[in-house]
């Protein structure tokens, strides 16, 4: 399949997943915590192709979703989180002995870490970081685990059919 067309397709899927997620109040009660369904696409791309494809789709998704449902700050937070988590997941993928679930967990945790780092810099509030950090660690762990399981399942079911 044409590479550009594929990237467009995956971006569309990521954007739709991001939209679907706004309709699902999964983890209500804790601000900023969500499942991160769109990261499904990023994890999938990272494992089927490379970090470059994952990064392209990730950035496109964040900007589009940000303009549709968020604001400039949410774009900034998301870019920080996504960049950090993609870098870590790329590193983890290279470590033998860690599965896609482990990479996804690390991605979820570092995504939250990146976001709260930016948030505490923007808001100039160090206590925010200290206070909120454990909550976001656990949240990243759970959401990363779920996304990892889903990604593993999708990879298994689409094996041999993924090429650009």
């Amino acid at each position: 399949m044409n590479r550009t067309a594929s990237m467009g397709l995956f971006s569309a899927v990521a954007i739709i997943l991001g939209y679907v997620e706004t309709l699902l109040p999964v983890f209500t009660g804790i601000p900023g915590v969500k499942l991160g369904l769109a990261n499904l696409v990023v994890v999938f791309l990272l494992y089927t192709f490379s970090w470059k494809e994952a990064a392209v789709v990730s950035v496109i998704r964040i900007i589009v979703i940000g303009f549709l449902f968020g604001n400039l700050f949410s774009i900034l937070f998301s870019l920080a989180g996504a960049g950090f988590s993609l870098a870590v997941m790329t590193g983890i993928k290279k470590i033998s002995g860690m599965s896609i679930v482990g990479a996804s967990i690390a991605g979820g945790v570092t995504h939250n870490l990146g976001q709260i780092l930016v948030a505490s810099v923007v808001l100039e509030n160090k206590n925010l970081l200290l206070y909120y950090f454990p909550v976001l660690l656990i949240a990243g762990l759970i959401t990363g685990f779920l996304i990892g399981l889903l990604s593993a399942e999708i990879l298994k079911r689409t094996a041999g059919r993924n090429r650009l």
Binding site: I95, G97, M98, S99, V101, G102, I105, A106, V109, L137, I138, G140, L141, F145
Partner: peptide, 14 residues
Amino acid sequence: MKKRDFVLVGAVLA
């Protein structure tokens, strides 16, 4: 899930 995944989960929890 592999062994190191569980190590990671443990580390995050800790």
